[in-house]
Simulated assay, not measured.
Amino acid sequence: MTFLLLPDDNQIYTIKIYLRLILYLFVPGIFIYILINIFNVPHLTYVRADKREYENYYFLYYSLSTVHFRFFSIFDEPGVVGSLSAMVVMYYRKFLSKREYIAFICAGFLSFSLFFIVTFPIIYYFSDIRYIPYQKRVKKLFTCALILVVFYFSFILAITQFINNPIIQFGIYNRFKWENGLIVGMVNNRDILPGFDESYTSFVERNEADLWLGKGKNSVADEFGASGLSYRISIYEKGILIVLYMLGLIILMHPWHRQFIFSLVSVIFILMLLFQRTLFFKIDYFSLLFIGSGIITKYAKKENSTYNTEP
């Protein structure tokens, strides 16, 4: 709420400072990332509340011993880097310098985030859609639909050709739901907890007050010994009313009357983002989405706005 009460220029300035701070922290992170993939580098052991152990390198880089090849930066999950980079690619193409923008793209790929890798071609393609004439926006929309159809069948053909490769099978094939040789959905691996699937199904079928109001914060961890990031966990803990409230905020913060096609694409992107990492109310996620999807559009062409000035 404090952030939202700031004048628009100050909100945009805050985002610019935040993105550059993260970018500067990528620099030592990349250096450490290279070192730990070559040498055995001394580190501290950080144990999270859920007992998961991480390697902490000089308080500037995290990693798990089994996935040194994934870029973590200062976060305890490489998927955070992938999600953050995806938001930058989608909304901040004209906000950062070309060098800064490319650095976030590189970080996204080094994180080996499946979400970033799969969505990158699409979100990059649409990243300039609010700055081009209306006719070109419509053309982009239909061109993308055609490309997606071609990509869908090409992707299926490529995956099935390498199905016997254990890395492809584990890292890509098993992440999708298959039916008659076609991809029909994503496997939700964010709430694989013993007993949760059955409890969630019963929770929804009963349709009692808890379904609308939720069972309360940390109820999943209390009942199942661990938690995760999943839309089902959000419904279980917060209830459908809060989820609908969140969806309402997402819709309202877009400039539908001025940028309908951009807003439509942006909402789809946010729903995909939150499906695999439900952190809408986390301050940095919310700020990046709120500014990127709405306010920044009004300032992009103002020569003297904070958008175009160095901090």
Rank of each mutant, 00 (worst) to 15 (best):
I250W: 03
A107S: 08
F3I: 10
R175E: 07
I261P: 04
R232A: 03
L213S: 12
K98E: 06
D197I: 05
S63V: 05
P133Y: 05
F116Q: 05
V118Q: 10
V41R: 06
K139T: 12
L146M: 12
I283Y: 09
P255H: 03
L193I: 14
F115H: 08
T309E: 05
V184F: 13
V149R: 00
N174Q: 10
T119N: 14
M272L: 14
I15G: 09
A86M: 05
Q161K: 14
A145W: 07
L35C: 11
E55G: 10
W178P: 06
P311C: 05
D76Y: 13
L264E: 03
R258L: 02
V243W: 11
M246N: 11
I167K: 13
G181E: 01
I147M: 15
F290T: 05
E205C: 02
F275K: 13
L193M: 13
E55D: 06
G108P: 02
I283D: 10
D50I: 12
L211Q: 02
I283W: 03
F155N: 07
K51I: 01
G239P: 02
N180H: 12
E55L: 08
I296S: 13
F262M: 01
Y58P: 12
L288Q: 02
I167Q: 06
R99Y: 11
S73Q: 01
L274D: 02
D76V: 13
Y231V: 15
F286D: 09
E208G: 15
I15F: 05
V138F: 15
Y18C: 13
G195W: 12
G195M: 13
T2K: 13
N189D: 12
I12N: 06
F72Q: 10
I34F: 15
I250T: 00
I38H: 01
F31T: 12
L249I: 04
V187C: 01
I129G: 02
F280W: 08
S113D: 05
D222C: 05
A300E: 15
S305G: 15
Y124C: 11
F176Y: 08
M246S: 09
Y91M: 04
D197H: 05
V204T: 09
M246R: 07
G248M: 10
Y285E: 05
F26R: 07
V149N: 03
M246I: 10
N207P: 11
L274T: 01
G29Y: 11
N37A: 05
F286V: 12
E53H: 01
F31E: 03
C106E: 06
Y24T: 15
R232I: 09
I22K: 06
T2N: 09
L289K: 06
H68N: 14
V80S: 07
Y33C: 09
I268G: 08
V138R: 12
H68S: 07
L274F: 06
P255S: 02
F116D: 04
Y101S: 04
E310T: 03
V150S: 10
L21W: 10
L114R: 07
N308V: 02
S227K: 11
N10C: 14
R206Y: 09
P28M: 10
L25V: 03
S202D: 14
K298F: 08
Q169C: 04
I296G: 08
L21D: 07
S65I: 02
M272Q: 12
P78V: 00
Y124K: 12
G195Y: 12
K217N: 11
I117Q: 00
F26D: 09
L229T: 13
S97A: 06
N56H: 09
N164C: 00
K140V: 00
